[in-house]
């Protein structure tokens, strides 16, 4: 079942087109990733789908509710984790979550009941009475996610949820996201400019300058736009290069190794030349390569 259906969605600011007629669908329970550099239109799209921004043209249905006509219904089924923390810094975690819950018409008792299934997993007990401004970046993100879950959303929008976090906090945030996805079968709509974060997505849409330039599963995209590489650690020389030319003419020498682009199965070739090719590794194509090949630009990794 499709929970998001977008057709020709456009957002224009005077002369500037932030999102240019994009169309895509999101299935229930899947993790859908929007990949693109800053300014590609990712946040604008999320802001339109969560009714924060009005659309210029096009149509979108969220859980069957039409954007622009049934916005209140859409707001009830959406949960959103913003790029920046948007909770009140001077208030405690408890006050923040209880007041946010009231915006959905929920009483204190109802908010606590909604959060109860997640409280232990998100380790809320220790930070419940602490001021939001006193929390670490990772703890804040944890509270931000809890806030997004208050209204028991069907779709959780995550707008670059790990930007600015240290690797440890990033991993923790991803553990929570995977938990929500697997244990609660929640539909996740993610925007990111971190390549590796799209690895586990069911569907990836690559956005550039407000346009969708490619879409597919990570595997499909890698097959289409990325090439595997054989990295051979050896000295630069004519004999090595003539051996490489048997399998590919796309290669470069970097510092202490050849990087050889090839999609061939190299097991047999390496076995045959095991005396020469002793120190090597086989690197599969990455989402980084996909993005680079599609846009000619590199993203953060």
């Amino acid at each position: 079942m499709k929970v998001i259906e977008v057709k020709d969605l456009t957002k224009k600011y005077k002369e500037h087109t932030a999102v240019n007629g994009i169309s895509f669908d999101v299935e229930e329970g899947e993790m859908f990733a929007f990949l693109g550099e800053n300014g590609a239109g990712k946040s604008t799209t999320i802001n339109m789908l969560t009714t924060i921004l009005g659309k210029t043209s096009g149509s979108a249905f969220i859980c069957g509710h039409e954007l622009g006509k049934e916005d209140d219904e859409i707001r009830k089924v959406n949960g959103i984790v913003f790029q920046n923390s948007v909770l009140d810094k001077k208030l405690s975690v408890k006050d923040n979550l209880l007041t946010r819950g009231s915006y959905y018409g929920l009483s204190r008792k109802q908010v606590l009941a909604r959060l109860e299934p997640f409280s232990e997993r998100f380790e809320m007990k220790d930070i419940w009475d602490r001021k939001y401004e006193k929390l670490s970046g990772g703890q804040r993100r944890r509270v931000d996610i809890m806030r997004a879950l208050i209204n028991n959303p069907k779709i959780l929008f995550l707008d670059e949820p790990t930007t600015g976090l240290d690797p440890k906090s990033r991993k923790i945030v991803w553990d929570y996201i995977n938990y929500l996805r697997k244990e609660h079968k929640m539909t996740i709509f993610l925007t990111t400019h971190y390549m590796e974060e799209t690895r586990d997505a069911d569907h990836v849409v690559i956005l550039d300058k407000g346009n969708i330039i490619s879409t597919g599963t990570p595997a499909e995209l890698k097959t289409r736009y990325a090439h595997s590489r054989l990295v051979w650690y050896t000295e630069k020389g004519e004999s090595a290069e003539s051996l490489i030319q048997i399998i590919s003419d796309k290669y470069v020498y970097d510092a202490d190794h050849y990087s050889i682009e090839t999609d061939r199965n190299l097991t047999e070739f390496i076995f045959e030349h095991r005396e020469e090719i002793r120190d090597y590794e086989f690197v599969k194509g990455t989402m980084d390569d996909v993005f680079l090949n599609l846009t000619g630009k590199e993203l953060a990794s």
């Binding site: 802001n47 948007v86 909770l87 009140d88 946010r100 915006y103 959905y104």
Partner: peptide, 14 residues
């Protein structure tokens, strides 16, 4: 300034 208004506007609060 801090984007809190976006968070509020994303709720059913009129």
């Amino acid at each position: 300034e801090s984007g809190v208004d976006s968070d509020i506007c994303a709720t059913p609060l009129k």
